[in-house]
């Protein structure tokens, strides 16, 4: 396998080639060290074309498209604030008090792309596209016009997670039937209660 640039080098190359592109490196904590690049929606397709057609990279094969659901989380932090606190003798003094502040971090849906090169036999390069939130702004650009292998997999991410891919030639449900209304792979999906407990007759 020929040497693939590291994630930081790739970020620099992309930002130099596609003007206006915003690329963030997301580190990977596991031992596989496959770091990923988070792309912005506007320039995602231009970046994808650059990665596919650049003579040194030639990432012509998109192997996998995954949908991931990150739920809304709550960030709890302890901060010190100055407040007027009543002392034991009734007089109020200014003191530093520790308070817990909870902030809601909105969740999002994510599409993760794994790219390889059949020509140069290197890879993977991992791209990520994130939606704004999980409820009403769930659109990301589709990379099917760049790599045809994303066609069915993006449909599956739409079917099971509800991520809407702009520019997909045929976005409809693929595994569940037309008329099914839920997004089953989301973490907060509740299946219908049709389980019936039975026992063997004596």
């Amino acid at each position: 396998m020929s040497a693939l640039p590291t994630a930081e080098e790739l970020k620099a190359q992309i930002e130099a080639a596609v003007s206006g592109a915003v690329v963030t490196v997301i580190p990977n904590g596991s031992l596989s060290a496959q770091h990923s690049l988070l792309l912005d929606h506007e320039h995602a397709r231009a970046v994808a074309l650059f990665l596919r057609d650049h003579p040194d990279l030639r990432l012509d094969y998109c192997s996998l498209v995954t949908g991931v659901d990150w739920l809304d989380t709550e960030l709890t932090e302890k901060i010190k604030v100055k407040k007027m606190v009543a002392g034991p003798d009734g007089a109020e003094t200014e003191q530093e008090v520790e308070e817990t502040r909870k902030t809601k971090v909105p969740g999002y849906l994510e599409a993760v792309y794994h790219l390889f090169s059949m020509e140069k036999k290197h890879g993977p390069v991992v791209l990520r596209l994130r939606t704004a939130n999980r409820t009403d702004r769930t659109r990301v650009p589709s990379l099917t016009p760049v790599w045809r292998s994303c066609e069915f997999q993006e449909r599956e991410a739409f079917d099971l997670y509800g991520i809407v891919f702009d520019g997909h030639p045929d976005l409809r449900r693929i595994l569940m039937w037309e008329g099914f209304e839920d997004y089953p792979m989301r973490k907060d999906y509740v299946p219908p209660a049709d389980d019936i407990l039975m026992e063997a007759r004596p």
């Binding site: 990977n28 596991s30 496959q34 192997s63 996998l64 794994h114």
Partner: peptide, 24 residues
């Protein structure tokens, strides 16, 4: 309990590239 992170492992299965993507 693997450390938080992700990995993509693939093999040449008889039908093609069989890969598993895990996020821990």
């Amino acid at each position: 309990r693997p450390k938080p992170g992700e990995a993509y492992g693939r093999i040449e299965a008889p039908k093609g590239e069989l890969g598993f993507f895990l996020i821990s």
